[in-house]
């Protein structure tokens, strides 16, 4: 679960590394982008001038790591005046689907 914007702190990158590690080890994982986390999906990102790895480039490898379930909270997008065309991945879901996702999760890691 990604709740924070990229680059301002290490949370987004650490979350992504945790997801990639799950994929590499064959552990099933779904990702939820919610609240400030939806900024991570904005394109185009170019982080070269701030000396950080490009989060969007790393995230685009997720399908190769067998992480195919990527969800995006609809209300978080709306609050930020973002639409499906602004984001580079994920299926948009409403709050009840977010609740269902929580309810069916064995563990939740929040970044």
């Amino acid at each position: 679960m990604f709740r924070h914007a990229p680059y301002g702190n290490a949370l987004a990158r650490e979350g992504l590394e945790a997801a990639l590690a799950c994929g590499a080890m064959g552990a099933k994982a779904s990702l939820l982008y919610i609240n400030e986390g939806v900024w991570q999906l904005l394109e185009p990102q170019d982080s070269s001038a701030i000396d950080c790895k490009n989060q969007a480039a790393m995230a685009s490898a997720l399908p190769l790591y067998d992480i195919d379930e990527i969800w995006v909270d609809e209300a978080s997008l709306q609050q930020r005046n973002l639409t499906a065309t602004d984001i580079n991945a994920g299926k948009i879901i409403d709050s009840s689907r977010v609740q269902a996702l929580f309810a069916t999760s064995k563990n939740i890691l929040s970044f």
Binding site: M1, R3, F102, A103, S105, K106, N107, I108, S110
Partner: peptide, 8 residues
């Protein structure tokens, strides 16, 4: 709880 979600 079946899972714990920490909001921080």
């Amino acid at each position: 709880a079946s899972a714990i979600q920490s909001w921080y």
